[in-house]
Amino acid sequence: MYTTNNNYKEAQLLSDRALAFMANHDLIPNPINYAVTYHYVSNDSTDLKSAIEKKLNNNGQIDNVFIECLFNEHICAAQNIETFILSPFEKTLTKTLKKIDAQIVNEKEIAFNLRKVNKALNQFTQHKPLKSLISFIINLISNSQSQRKSLTDELTHTYAEVNLLRTQLNESRDQAAEDILTGLLNRRGCQSKLQSFDLSKTHSTIMIDIDHFKQINDGFGHTVGDKVIQLIASIIKKSITADDIAARLGGEEFIIVMNNKPTKVAELLAEKIRASVEKLKLLQKHTNTYLPTISVSLGIAELNEKESWESLFDKADRAMYQAKKLGRNRCVVIEQSLKPA
C-alpha cells in the first residue's frame, strides 16, 4: 500500500536518505533506482521493504538489476508516480547540483590563492616542505573538482531521464484513456473529460449502438466487424465539435456528450450520423460480397438540473433501446419517438 507524503520538508529528508542509500550501494542515480529506494526509506511498501531487507540480511548485492525487478513488481502500477516520485527527485537533484556548483566555486578560489602562495614560496628554499604540502593540497582540490564535474554531468543527464519518464507517463495516461481500435476515448477517458464540464449548463448525450452487429461478426468475421466499428467511429469523430466528447463504451456501443448544447442540437447531430452510417457501402474483397446495409440506433437525452451523468446516460440508453424496439435505424429522444428514416 502506498501513501502520499504532503509534508515537503519530510519528503525532502526522505529524498536525501534515498540518495544516500543509492550512494552506499553504488546505484546509478536514475528515476527507477530513486523510486525504489524512496519507497524503501519511507516505509510506504511493506512488501518492497521486506524484499530489500531480506537481500541485505543474506548479504546479497543491491544492484541495478535487482532494483529494476522491484520497480516492475511493486511500483510500476502505483498511482501518482509523477507527484510522488519525479517531483521530489527533481527538487533533490536541483538542490544537490547547487551545492556541488557552490563547492566547486569555493575550491577554485582556494586553489587560486594557494597557487599564489606557492609561487611566492618558490623564492625561498627553506620553505620547501610547506611548498610540497601546498602542491599536494592543490592536486587534491584538482582531483576533487574533476570528480565533482563528472558527478554533475551524470546528474544533469539524469534530468533528461526524468523528463523522458515524465513524457512516457503522460503518454501512458493518454493511452489508458483511449480506445485502441478506434482512437476515441474509452469509458475511463470519457469520465475524466466530463470533470471539466460545468453541470450548471445544458448538456445533451447520444447513445449509439450498431444494429445487428453480431450477424456481421458471425457472417463476415471479426476483422470485418472491427472495420465497421472503425468506420462508424470515424463518422462520429468528423461529426462532433472540439467541445464535445465521443467515446466507445465497449463492443458496438458509443456515446457522445455535447457540451452546453440542448436536445434539439443533439437530434440534428444524431440524424446526421445515422444517415452517414446508412450510406456506407462495404465490400469484403476476398469473397467479393457486399455487406448488408449498416445501420445504428441512437438514443438522445438532456441533462436536467441536479441530475448526475449516470442518470443522463441511463436515459439515453433507454431511448436507444426504444429505437431498437421501434425497428432500429432511427433516433429517439427519451420518451419521445422520432419518425423512422
Rank of each mutant, 00 (worst) to 15 (best):
T223W: 01
Q191P: 03
D218K: 11
V228S: 10
I229F: 10
Q168G: 01
I229K: 09
D244Y: 08
S234E: 15
G250Q: 12
G221Q: 06
K201H: 13
E171S: 10
G189I: 05
T167W: 00
R248E: 11
P262L: 09
E178N: 05
T182R: 02
P262N: 15
T205V: 14
V265I: 13
N260A: 15
E178G: 00
R188N: 05
K264G: 00
K238L: 12
H222V: 09
K193D: 02
D244V: 13
T263V: 15
E178C: 06
E252V: 08
F213N: 07
Q168W: 06
D211H: 10
F213M: 10
I210P: 12
I208C: 02
I256F: 05
E252C: 07
K214Y: 09
A233Q: 04
D243F: 08
D226R: 07
Q168R: 13
I236C: 08
A246Q: 02
A242F: 12
R173C: 00
E253M: 09
T167F: 10
A242W: 10
M207T: 03
D218E: 11
I240F: 06
V265N: 14
I180Q: 11
Q230P: 02
G183F: 09
K238H: 13
V265Q: 13
R248M: 08
L185Y: 12
F220T: 11
E252N: 12
F197N: 14
N217W: 09
D174Q: 08
H222R: 03
T167A: 08
A233P: 03
L165S: 04
N217V: 07
T223S: 12
E178W: 00
L249T: 08
H212E: 10
I245Y: 00
M207R: 02
S239D: 01
K227H: 13
L181V: 04
D244K: 06
S234T: 14
I232K: 11
L181N: 05
S192K: 15
A242V: 11
E253Q: 15
T202W: 06
I256Y: 00
Q168S: 12
D243E: 14
G219M: 02
L181D: 02
H222Q: 09
T167E: 14
D209L: 05
M207W: 05
S196I: 15
R173G: 00
V228T: 09
S192G: 05
K237Q: 15
K238I: 05
D226K: 05
E171W: 02
